[in-house]
């Protein structure tokens, strides 16, 4: 089985992709976060316009740099703007 990253989608991102969790195949060495986000937008066109407004979380920590490497076995979460309260 190909190495994979688990992608968690919330709120509008979940609705746009039609799934709350994706198992995303990646190369054994992983890929930069920016590339992963671009591929997500290409695979799910309804998600593409939402992604620039999102925060990203890798293994429970916010990540800002698009160069951060996402590796097989990682958990990557897509957070649209928050709306609690």
């Amino acid at each position: 089985m190909a190495p994979r990253v688990t992608i968690l989608l919330f709120a509008t991102a979940r609705l746009a992709a039609g799934a709350s969790e994706l198992r995303w195949p990646v190369e054994p060495g992983g890929l930069p976060l920016g590339s992963l986000v671009r591929s997500l937008g290409s695979r799910y066109p309804k998600l593409a316009p939402i992604l620039p407004t999102c925060r990203f979380v890798l293994n429970g920590r916010y990540v800002v740099s698009r160069a951060t490497r996402v590796r097989p076995g990682d958990k990557f979460a897509v957070h649209p703007p928050y709306g609690g309260g």
Binding site: F10, A11, T12, V57, H79, P80, Y82, G83, G84, G85
Partner: peptide, 8 residues
């Protein structure tokens, strides 16, 4: 809370 807590 409204700005920075991941709740939707």
């Amino acid at each position: 809370l409204k700005r920075s807590v991941p709740i939707w």
